[in-house]
Design a protein around this nucleic acid. Structure first.
Lengths: 236, 236
DNA sequence: GTTTTTGTTAATGTAAGGTTAAAAGCAAGG
DNA sequence: CCTTGCTTTTAACCTTACATTAACAAAAAC
C-alpha cells in the first residue's frame, strides 16, 4: 500500500502565475517541476519521469501544442492538461487532437484544477495494469524481497537494503541476464539523468556487487556506454 | 456488484442553504437526512446508519466541532466534512484534530463538494477492505487482548496497555512479519500525519519494544522511511 | 596517448529514528 | 474547585541510515 508521490511537469512562462501554481500544487502533495518555456519543458521532460504534464498554450518560441506533440512522441500515455487564456473553439479542438486529457481556461479555480488532476490520475491508475508489481526475486542463491527491502543468501541472515540499493537491484532483476540501460535506472529511480546522478548510480552498483559477491555465479557486468547486466550462471 | 445508495447526514441550521444543498445532493443520487441543529443532528446520527456527515461549523447551541466529537465517539471511522464561512486557520486545525476528512469554505462550488464526497467515499471503500475486526493476537510468547487492552507473556501477569499502545500494537500485529506503513498508523490511530504525531508514534514504538523485550524472538524492526515490521522468529 | 567512462573508497550533509524527560491534557475522586 | 494519577504530546539531544559528492584509480574507446 505504498503511496507514491505523483510528479507533475508544469510548463508556464508567466513567472508569477507559474510560481503560485507550483506552490499550490506542492502544498497538495504533488512534486512539481516548473519549466519556464517550451524548450526547457522538453528537456526536463526527457530527463525526469513524470505522471502528468500541465502546459500553457501561449508561450514564446515553442507553444504548448508543439511541445505536447513532442512529448507524445516520447510517451504516448502521459496525461496532458492545457492551460489557456482563450476559450476559442479551434484551440480546444486542436488541443484534443494532440491528445489533451483536459482543458482549463485561465483564470480558473485552483480547486477545480486539483480535482481534475486527481480524476485524471485515478483514471490512468486503473489503466496501468502493465505496471510490473513483482517484488520478490530469486537471483542465483539470493532471495530479494523488494517490498521489505532485504536480501538473503541461501536462507541465511537478512541483509537490509537502502531504498536506492533496493530499487536498483530490483530493476536489474527485472532485466536479468539482459541489458538494463543506464538511462532507465536514472530516469526511473533517480528521476533525473545527469553527471552526478550517474556517478551516484555507479556508487550503488559497487555496493550491490559487494553484497552479491557471496555467490560466485552472480555478477553485475558493465556494458560500456549502455548500462549494466545482471548475469546468473546456472551450471554447477 | 450491487450499488448501494449512499446515505448522508447533513447538519445545517440555515434553512435556505440547507434545503438547497439537500436537494442538490438528492439529485445526485445520495439519500440525504437534513438536521437543523446540533442536537437534532446527533439524534438522527444515532438512529440512522450513515456513510458520511456534512456538518456546518457555526450553529447555535451545539457547534459542528462538538457534534463531530460526539459522532466520533460513536463511530471512529465515518467520514466528516465541515462547512464553514470562516476560513480561519484555527478552525481548520481544530477540525482536523477532531478527524475531519475535508473542509469546505462557504460559499463553495457545489460541483467541488460532489467531487470531494465521491473521493472520500472511494478512499473509505478501499480502507474498509483491510479493516479487520480481529481483537486477539498471539505474538510469539505473548497474547494481546486488544479489546480489554492487556498483554500477557506465557500466561503470566497481565500488563495493561494504554489506548495508543494498544492500537499501535494491534496495527502491527495485523501486519505481522510484514510492513506496517508509518502513514497507516498515523492516519488511522493519530488521525493526522505531521512531524509531532510522527515523533509521538516513535515514543510509543519505544514503549512497545520495552514490553516485548521479554521474548527474544519478538521484535519491532524499522524500515527506514517506510514504517515498522513486527517480526516473530519461529524457530526455537 | 589522450579522453571518456566506469570502479571504488571515503567524506560530508541531511533526514529519520531512538531515547528520555518534562510539560500538557484529561478524567476521576475528594 | 483542586488534587491525583494516568495518558499523550512536546522537546531536546543523540545515533544511525542514506544519498551525494569528491577524489583518484582502472578500463575502454578513440
Amino acid at each position: 500500500m505504498e503511496e507514491q508521490l505523483k510528479r507533475i511537469l508544469l510548463v508556464e512562462d508567466d513567472p508569477n502565475f507559474g510560481t503560485v501554481l507550483k506552490d499550490y500544487l506542492s502544498m497538495n502533495d504533488y512534486e512539481v517541476t516548473h519549466a519556464k518555456n517550451g524548450m526547457e519543458g522538453f528537456e526536463k521532460f526527457k530527463r525526469g519521469d513524470f505522471d502528468l504534464c500541465i502546459l500553457d498554450v501561449m508561450m514564446p518560441y515553442k507553444d504548448g501544442f508543439t511541445l505536447a506533440k513532442e512529448i507524445r512522441e516520447k510517451n504516448a500515455d502521459i496525461p496532458i492538461v492545457f492551460l489557456t487564456a482563450k476559450a476559442m473553439k479551434e484551440d480546444v479542438l486542436k488541443g484534443y487532437k494532440v491528445g489533451a486529457d483536459d482543458y482549463l481556461n485561465k483564470p480558473f479555480d485552483s480547486e477545480v484544477l486539483l480535482m481534475k488532476i486527481k480524476a485524471i490520475m485515478q483514471r490512468k491508475a486503473n489503466d496501468t495494469v502493465a505496471d510490473s508489481k513483482q517484488f520478490e526475486f530469486k537471483i542465483g542463491g539470493f532471495d530479494l524481497n523488494s517490498k521489505l527491502r532485504f536480501l538473503t543468501y541461501n536462507g541465511g541472515e537478512q541483509v537490509k537494503l537502502s531504498p536506492k540499493e533496493n530499487e536498483l537491484l530490483r530493476m536489474l532483476a527485472l532485466h536479468e541476464n539482459d541489458l538494463m540501460p543506464r538511462e532507465l535506472a536514472l530516469t526511473k529511480i533517480w528521476r533525473d539523468d545527469n553527471y552526478f546522478t550517474s556517478r551516484s548510480m555507479d556508487v550503488y552498483i559497487a555496493k550491490l556487487r559487494k553484497y552479491l559477491k557471496l555467490d560466485p555465479n552472480v555478477e553485475i557486468l558493465n556494458i560500456h556506454g549502455e548500462g549494466f547486466r545482471l548475469v546468473v550462471n546456472q551450471d554447477a
